[in-house]
Amino acid sequence: MRNILLALCLLIPTSVKADGLGFMTPSKNIYCNGGVTGGGHLYCTIINRGGPIPLPKPASCNGYWGHEFYIEASGNVKMICSQRLESVDYTDIAHYGVSGEFGSVNCRSERTGFTCSNADGHGFFLSRRKQLVF
């Protein structure tokens, strides 16, 4: 029953409540996972990216920088130093035109990119051409 409801939610281009499962965009270039506990949070990774990196790489990062973003219900977006980048193959797709809520974190998947913001108005925009932190 749960799979049927989830499938219906992903087919209807409206707002859906996220339940902590991982998902990816139709391009398979951006994938996220998170949950609604503690007000909501979300980790998102973009595999193929271009343009300037939105935040300077810390000296302590010896891995990949500019690919992983973390947002909580409030506060600034954090970027994460990754030791390796790998694609996933989630069955749940955030189709273009669909919005989702992870507690106080709201996201929208569109052909132009993937945007998430929190209750404080902080967030990120991810696309193959550019990534922004606001």
Rank of each mutant, 00 (worst) to 15 (best):
H122I: 04
S87C: 12
V88D: 11
G103K: 04
N62I: 10
T14A: 06
S104I: 00
G66E: 03
G97W: 07
N106M: 13
C81L: 04
H95W: 05
E68V: 07
F114R: 06
S87I: 14
V133D: 06
G63V: 07
L126Q: 06
G39R: 03
P26I: 01
G66R: 01
S74F: 11
I46R: 05
G121Y: 05
G38N: 10
G66I: 04
K28T: 09
H41R: 08
G35V: 02
R108F: 12
L11R: 01
I4M: 00
G22K: 00
E86Q: 15
F124E: 09
N48Q: 12
L55H: 06
S104Q: 15
I30A: 02
L85I: 13
G63S: 06
C116D: 11
A7F: 00
F69H: 06
C116P: 12
H67R: 05
C32L: 02
C107E: 08
M79T: 09
I12Q: 03
V77S: 12
I30M: 02
T25P: 03
H67L: 07
G35M: 05
F102N: 14
G34C: 04
L11K: 01
K78A: 15
I80M: 09
E86Y: 13
H122C: 09
L55I: 11
C9Y: 00
Y64S: 15
D89N: 15
F124A: 10
G35C: 08
P52G: 10
M1V: 05
I46S: 11
I53Q: 04
I12L: 09
G51H: 08
Y31K: 00
T91R: 08
N33P: 00
E68K: 02
E72V: 06
L21P: 00
S99C: 10
N33V: 11
N3G: 01
K78G: 11
D19E: 01
E72D: 15
S117L: 11
F69T: 08
